[in-house]
Design a protein around this nucleic acid. Structure first.
Lengths: 345, 345
DNA sequence: ATTAGCACTCAACAGCGTCGAGTGCTAACA
DNA sequence: TGTTAGCACTCGACGCTGTTGAGTGCTAAT
C-alpha cells in the first residue's frame, strides 16, 4: 500500500481540522466538512490505511484519529516545498517597533513580545552569536575618584562593562591615553587573544599596572561568558491555554524549563544557521517537549553574526502562520540591526 | 466577646497548620496536635467565636476553618512586633553570589533566582530608583567610521548606551575632547536638566552640531524611561505547585501578570521606602492576587537610591521564613552594591 | 471501488449510595 | 461558669452504575 493523492488530501484535512480544534477527528467530520465527494465509510478505509502507514494515531479505539509526528513532518515539508508562506501581517510587525534609538536588549525583548502576541504561542529570541567577537574599542570612563568603568565594544556590538579600581591620581586624560593605547594594541583581537596578550602588556606598561590588572581580571572573567547571551522569552503563559497543558505537572515542567535560560538557549540555538528549522515532537530531543514543536528562523547582523528567533507551541501548531511570522520578523530584525540610523547591532 | 489569650493561641495554631498543609483545619486536629489541654468541643466553641470575630472563614459547613486575611494580618503583625525573625541561612545566601565582578543586571537576576529557589515562591527584584539620577560622565566612544557609542554614567550607575551618527571626519581624539567638554558642563545635572541645556549648548558649539543633535535626541528619548528599569523575576513556575493555583484560568492570569513588567513594577514598588511591607490578599489591590500575599523589603545603594525585593506567594505563606530571607538578602545586596571591590552600583 | 448498515467499543457524564471529617447543639459534669 | 461527651446533621470525596454519543470495523450490496 502506498501514499496516493487522495490519501494525501485526506491527511491534510485531518491535520487542518486537528490544528483547528484540538479534538481527535473522525471520519464523519472529514466527509462532511472537507472531502465532500466521499462518504464517511470510504474515509474510514483510507484512515485505516493512513494509520497503518504511521501517519495517524488513535488515542483509543472509539475515538477519532490524531496526526502523528510523522504526519506533521510531511505536512510541514510539503508546506515549505510549495512555498506556501503567506505574506500578510508584514506592516503589523513593523508597527510594533515604533521607537527609534534602541538597544539590542530592547529589540530582542520587544521581538519576543511581538511574536508571542501575534502567534499566541511562546516566543524565544536569542541575540546574535557566531564566530568569536572581535574587539573594536576599549575605553576607560572615569566614574569617581579611584574607579573607572570599562567599556568594551566588539563587532557584535555587545558592550560589557564593569567598574574597576584605579589609583586615585589617574585623571580623565590619562585614562583616555591608556584607552587609546589599549585600543590600538588590541583592536581586532578576540577576547581570548586579548587575554593572552595582556600579561605581556602588563610587563611593558609598568606605570599603569593597576589598571591593566583590573582589566585583565575583567577580561578573563568575561571571555568565557557568551553564555549569558541575550535571550528573551515572551508569552509563556500562552501555553497554558492549550489543552495539551491542562496537566499541571506538565505545565510546571515546561515553565520551569523556560526559566532556565541556559538550557533554553541550547534548545533553541539548535542546529547551525539554517534559515528555518521545524522540529516536531520527539525531534526536539527534549523529553519535556514531547508534544511541542519548535520553529526557528535566523536573522543576521552586519558583522555576519547570527541570531535566532523561535516559537514553541503544541505539535498541532499553525505552522504556516508561524513560519510566515517568523520569516517576516527575521527580515525585520536583520534590517533593523543593519541600519544604523534606526538601531545598533 | 473579645480576643483573649487562649483564642490567640488557638488562632496561631490554626494558621500554622493551614500554612503547613493547605487543608481547612478542624477542631479535632487542633486539639490533638497543638493545644493538648483542651478537647475538640472547646476548640469548636472558640473557633466559632473566632469566626464571628472575622478571623476565620468556613469554605462550607462541614469542612474545617481557614484563616481570613484579617487573621494573617494579625499573625504577621505580632510576628513582626515580637521581632521573631530567625537569622538562619545567612551564609547560604552569600554562597550564591560567588563571582566577583558583576553588573547590576546580573546581580538582580541572580537575586531573583536565589530568593525564589530559597522560598519556593515567586521572587521579584527591582533595580534601584529614587530621586532623579544625576549625570556623572558622558563619553563618546568611537565604534566605526561615522558612528559613536554614547555612554552615560549616572550616580545610579545605570549605563545607557546607544549608537549615534557622527561625521566621518571626527577621530578618536576629537570625540574625547567633546566628551570632556560635555562632562564638564553636564556633570551633576539630572537627565531632565541636561535636556533643557542642550539647545543652548548646540548654539554655542557650532562645530559639533551633528554630534550634539544626536546626543540630544538620545537624551530626550531616555529621560522619560526610568520605566524600563531593571526588573527580574524568578520562580514563576513555583506558584503552579500550590493548590491555590490548580485552577488553570487563575494560573494563566497570574503568569500573564508576571509577564507584563510595567504593571508588576507598580505592584511591587508599592508604598515608598518602608523597610518591610506585607500585603495580604485584598490588601495587594490587585484582583488577580486576591489570594496572594506580597512581602517586600528594600536595599539601598551608596548614592541613596532604593531598590525593592519582593516575594509573591499564596496567602498561606511561610511569612517568618520569607521575611527572614528577604531581610538577609536586602542586607546582602546593600553590602554588595556599596562595596566597589565586589560589584558596582 | 464505493457505500449503507449494523454491531461493537469506550470516554464522558450524570445519578446514587457510602464514607468520613467536621460542625452545632444540648445535656451532664466539675 | 467553663469544659466535656454525645449525638444528629451537613456536605465534599469517592466509587459504582447505567446511559449517551461519537467513532470504528466489518460485511454485504451497489
Amino acid at each position: 500500500m502506498t501514499m496516493d493523492d487522495r490519501k494525501m488530501r485526506i491527511l491534510q484535512a485531518i491535520i487542518d481540522d486537528y490544528i483547528l480544534t484540538g479534538v481527535p477527528v473522525g471520519s464523519r467530520t472529514i466527509s462532511r466538512k472537507y472531502e465532500t465527494g466521499l462518504s464517511s465509510a470510504t474515509i474510514r478505509n483510507e484512515m485505516s490505511d493512513l494509520e497503518e502507514l504511521g501517519y495517524l494515531d488513535q488515542p483509543h479505539v472509539s475515538a477519532g484519529r490524531i496526526p502523528s509526528a510523522k504526519a506533521y513532518r510531511l505536512y510541514v515539508d510539503t508546506l515549505l516545498q510549495a512555498g506556501k508562506i503567506p505574506n500578510n501581517s508584514a506592516e503589523s510587525i513593523q508597527a510594533h517597533f515604533s521607537g527609534r534609538t534602541r538597544q539590542i536588549e530592547d529589540v530582542i525583548d520587544r521581538a519576543a513580545q511581538v511574536i508571542s502576541s501575534l502567534t499566541n504561542y511562546t516566543a524565544v529570541v536569542l541575540g546574535p552569536k557566531g564566530k568569536a567577537p572581535k574587539l573594536q574599542t576599549v575605553q576607560l570612563v572615569p566614574v569617581s575618584r579611584g574607579t573607572a568603568l570599562v567599556v568594551i565594544v566588539t563587532d557584535l556590538g555587545i558592550i560589557r562593562d564593569s567598574l574597576i579600581h584605579v589609583s586615585a591620581e589617574l585623571d580623565s586624560d590619562t585614562l583616555y591615553n591608556i584607552s587609546r593605547n589599549l585600543t590600538e594594541q588590541l583592536q581586532g583581537c578576540t577576547l581570548q587573544e586579548a587575554c593572552d596578550r595582556m600579561p605581556d602588556m602588563i610587563q611593558r606598561m609598568r606605570d599603569n599596572d593597576e589598571v591593566l590588572q583590573g582589566l585583565y581580571g575583567f577580561l578573563t572573567e568575561r571571555k568565557e561568558l557568551p553564555r549569558t547571551a541575550q535571550i528573551a522569552v515572551g508569552g509563556t503563559s500562552n501555553m497554558l491555554a492549550y489543552p495539551e497543558y491542562s496537566d499541571m505537572e506538565k505545565a510546571r515542567s515546561f515553565l520551569s524549563l523556560m526559566e532556565t535560560r541556559d538550557k533554553l538557549e541550547d534548545i533553541i540555538r539548535g542546529n547551525g544557521e539554517m534559515a528555518f528549522t521545524v522540529r516536531i515532537g520527539p525531534e526536539t530531543g527534549v523529553p519535556e517537549m514531547a508534544d511541542c514543536s519548535i520553529v526557528t528562523a535566523t536573522y543576521s547582523t552586519r558583522t555576519g553574526h547570527h541570531g535566532t528567533i523561535g516559537v514553541i507551541g503544541p505539535t498541532r501548531m499553525q505552522y504556516s502562520r508561524v513560519i510566515s511570522i517568523l520569516n517576516m520578523m527575521g527580515h525585520q530584525l536583520t534590517e533593523m540591526l543593519n541600519d544604523d540610523s534606526k538601531g545598533r547591532s
